Computed example of a mutant assay.
Amino acid sequence: MVGVRGARVTDFGRTTLPYCSFVRPGEARARVGVGVGTDVVDLTAALATRRHAYAGLFAAGSLDPLLAAGPRTWHEVRTYVAANLSALAEHQVPASGVELVLPFEVADYVDFYASEHHASNVGRLFRPDGDALTPNWKHLPIGYHGRAGTVVVSGTPIRRPSGQMRERDGTIAFGPTAKLDLEAETGFVVGAGSSLGEPVPVESFDQHVFGVCVVNDWSARDVQAWEYVPLGPFLGKSFATSVSPWVVPLAALAGARIDPPRRDPDPVAYLQDDEPWGLDLELEIAVNGTVVSRAPYSEMYWTPAQMLAHLTVNGAALRPGDLFASGTVSGPGPGQQGSLLELSWNGSRPVTLDDGSTRAFLLDGDRVTIAATARLAGGRRIALGQVEGQVTS
């Protein structure tokens, strides 16, 4: 079991109530917890002690049974926990003293490309003589299938990958990537599945998606640039995707829902949405402790409801534990880009860190931290957790 102990602790307050899986010192068996302030309430122990009707959902130490139980059960469990925090305090332990592990088994992983600002920047860099956006970009949420087996929990070391690259003189080389990058993203965790052949409409989004996590979809840009034509990303991204150990229930973000940017042209019927599933989130990106960007998720062109509708419109079935991510979150202003590729403009304008060193792309030993917050109606912010990883050779 791979996890992280002594990770940076997030203060979640008493209303967000994110879920995690954790291991106590000296034990091998995982437990399910819920975050309260900077502590974890051990739901596996608490509900078993009370012989609660839902104790079985947490006995295995993973969120998998809860995800599969569906939205009515999600609501009932969250309501019970919120109403009984004081009574559950005897099962509360500091988050700093436990090992946080991957909270669910990732069934499938899909990554989207939903930021117009990011897609336009990448287009200008990779296709300088062509249009910034491909002709299909504003008609459908573009995505690719990643590898569920290389989704890892925050704190897992990230080994620099090797691959083929095209050199400036046109020769083909093989070796460690020289352009290792971060990608700040928001992840959406599917709970309730769907039947093969039955699309999930945009209005059913919250009947299938359980919650959100923070994602770093690491990228080898030189490998990606050589391989991506004509079928898109492959080895340049499949080596590792880091996720936060906390899954924030969608219900906690009800107050963060906003209208997305105006879509032009109007999307086809199955992508038209009446419900506002834009989200007012901010992703703060730090390299070795230096904040290099604050990326606004509110600027995302395609909403997660549209992503899910597009993912299933051909009849592809959902399974509990499916994970799909937004793609890099980038805004229109300086210091709002969600990757070093954009922040350094493919290395031509290196980013300066607090210690005076500069980065075009990540070096061995660099530590990347992406922390997310949501702004609720009225302006109050809540923490959604963070994902961290350190590059190794």
Rank of each mutant, 00 (worst) to 15 (best):
L271N: 13
L17R: 13
G143F: 15
A69I: 01
F210T: 13
R367P: 00
V23Q: 03
R51Y: 04
G289C: 09
G197F: 12
E388R: 13
T369A: 07
T177C: 05
R14W: 02
V329I: 14
T134S: 13
E198M: 05
A220H: 07
P94R: 05
E167P: 00
Y228E: 14
L318K: 02
A251D: 14
D131E: 15
N346G: 01
I370W: 07
E227M: 10
A87Q: 13
Y301N: 06
W74G: 00
V32M: 04
R159W: 01
A28S: 14
G211I: 05
L283K: 07
I158F: 02
T15Y: 12
Y301G: 09
V110M: 04
D273L: 10
G365M: 09
P65A: 08
R221K: 10
L384A: 07
Q207E: 15
A240Q: 14
V101L: 04
F239S: 13
D42M: 04
V229Y: 10
P350Y: 02
E388K: 04
L182W: 00
R349M: 12
F361N: 07
F239I: 04
E185W: 03
Y297T: 06
A251S: 12
V77T: 02
R262T: 15
R166I: 11
V77S: 06
Q336M: 14
P65Y: 08
V77A: 12
R221A: 04
G315A: 08
E299N: 02
E275M: 10
Q337R: 11
L341K: 01
D64E: 08
T290S: 14
V223P: 08
V391D: 04
T241H: 01
E167K: 13
R50C: 00
Y109S: 05
A30S: 15
D39L: 00
M300F: 02
T16N: 02
P25N: 03
G37D: 02
D42N: 12
G197L: 08
P261R: 05
A316N: 11
D280R: 11
R127I: 00
V292W: 05
A82E: 10
E116N: 06
G175K: 03
V106A: 07
H91M: 03
Q390A: 13
V209A: 03
A254W: 03
A114L: 13
A295K: 03
N288Y: 09
V287T: 12
L362N: 12
A83T: 10
